[in-house]
Amino acid sequence: MVPKTHELFSHTAQQVAEAVISNYSTSFGLATRLLGPTHRHHIRNIYALVRIADEIVDGLAAEAGLDAGEQRELLDNFAAATRSALRFGISDNLVIHAFAQTARTTGITFDLIEPFFASMRADLGAASESLAPVRGLLADEHRDYVYGSAEVVGLMCLNVFLNDQVRTPAEVEALEFGARQLGAAFQNINFLRDLADDSVRLHRSYLTTESRLSDSDKTAWVIIIREQLAHAQATFSLLPKDARTAVRSAAALFAALNDRIAVTPVDRLYQERVRIPNAVKARLASQAILATAREGRT
C-alpha cells in the first residue's frame, strides 16, 4: 500500500531530524536513544529546528558569502516559516515540518518560539560587529539571551514529556523551574567550552562584560552551573519514567564537563575545547539507567 502524501512527507521529515542530531551531537544523540519511543522523535524534532537556526547565525550563512543584512533575512525567513508551520501544520522545509508536528501535538506555542529567535537575532548582531573589539554581555543581556536560547528549549522538551501526563500545579511549577535551570546550565557550560571559537571566530563574549574571562570569573561560573544542575536534578523524579534516564544521562555528561572545566586554566580554554571520552559517556549513561531502574523497585 502506498503511503498517503502527508504521511510519507512527515516520515521523511522525521528521518531528516534524526540525521541532524546524529551528525551534530553525539552526546544528545546518545541521550535521545535513552528516551522512550513516545518522546524520542519529538525531542529530535526540537533539536533539529534549534540546531539549524543556530547554524545560520554561527557561520553557515556567513561562510556562504551572505552579508549581515542577508544573514538576518535568512534567519527571519526561517522564523517566519516556523510561525507559518505552527499555524497550518505543514512546511516545505523538512526540519520545520517535523518541528511543527511536534509543536502542534505537544502544545508548544509562540511564547516559547519567539524568545528563541530573539536570541538568535542577538547573535547576528554580534557577528556584524566582527571588526570591533569583543563586547561582553551585561547581566540582564546574559539572562535574556540564555532564556531565549536555552531555557525555552528546556520548556519545549518539558511540554513533550508532560504531554498526556497528569501533574499538580505545584509539580508543574517545579518541573518548569528545573527545565529552565537545566537549559541554563547546559548553555553556560557550552559558553565555557566554546571560549576559543566564540571569541576568535564569532567575536562573542557571553560570560563577562569584558572581552575575556579571568580564572576567578571561570570559577564563579563553575559554581553557578553546579547550583543550576542541582536545582534541575531535584526535579528529575517528577518526570515520566521513560524520560528520566535520558535527562539524567545528559545532565551527568554536562556535570562531568563542568568538573573538567573547573580544573582547566582559562588560557587553555581559549585554545581548545574540553571533551568527555566516549567510554566515560557510556559509563554515565549506564549509571543513569541504573538510577532510574532503582526508582522502579522502590
Score class of each variant (00 low, 15 high):
residue 288 A to W: 02
residue 296 G to I: 06
residue 155 L to T: 04
residue 10 S to T: 13
residue 205 S to A: 15
residue 189 I to S: 00
residue 94 L to Y: 01
residue 202 L to V: 08
residue 175 L to N: 01
residue 190 N to G: 06
residue 157 C to Q: 02
residue 277 P to Y: 07
residue 194 D to K: 07
residue 4 K to G: 15
residue 269 L to E: 10
residue 297 R to P: 09
residue 260 R to K: 15
residue 272 E to K: 13
residue 146 V to A: 09
residue 203 H to Y: 12
residue 268 R to A: 15
residue 91 S to G: 10
residue 47 Y to S: 06
residue 79 A to N: 12
residue 277 P to M: 08
residue 190 N to W: 11
residue 278 N to A: 13
residue 248 R to C: 06
residue 187 Q to N: 09
residue 169 P to A: 10
residue 87 R to E: 15
residue 284 L to T: 08
residue 284 L to F: 02
residue 126 A to C: 05
residue 110 F to Y: 09
residue 246 A to C: 09
residue 296 G to H: 01
residue 37 P to T: 15
residue 295 E to Q: 14
residue 185 A to L: 07
residue 152 V to M: 01
residue 278 N to D: 07
residue 62 A to P: 09
residue 200 V to P: 05
residue 100 A to Y: 04
residue 18 E to T: 13
residue 97 H to L: 11
residue 128 S to V: 04
residue 171 E to P: 04
residue 274 V to M: 06
residue 218 K to S: 11
residue 79 A to R: 11
residue 293 A to C: 00
residue 240 P to I: 11
residue 144 D to G: 05
residue 161 F to L: 07
residue 68 A to C: 12
residue 4 K to V: 10
residue 99 F to Y: 08
residue 60 L to Q: 12
residue 179 A to N: 09
residue 268 R to P: 04
residue 290 L to M: 12
residue 220 A to P: 04
residue 122 A to S: 13
residue 137 L to K: 12
residue 232 A to P: 04
residue 180 R to A: 14
residue 18 E to Y: 06
residue 57 V to F: 08
residue 263 V to H: 11
residue 64 A to F: 12
residue 36 G to M: 12
residue 96 I to S: 02
residue 28 F to G: 00
residue 179 A to E: 03
residue 198 D to Q: 06
residue 186 F to W: 03
residue 161 F to V: 08
residue 85 A to N: 01
residue 115 P to I: 12
residue 231 H to G: 13
residue 117 F to C: 00
residue 64 A to Q: 14
residue 227 E to Y: 01
residue 14 Q to P: 00
residue 109 T to K: 14
residue 50 V to E: 04
residue 249 S to Q: 13
residue 173 E to N: 14
residue 4 K to E: 15
residue 66 L to T: 06
residue 28 F to D: 04
residue 291 A to S: 09
residue 150 A to M: 05
residue 113 I to K: 07
residue 256 A to H: 13
residue 9 F to H: 14
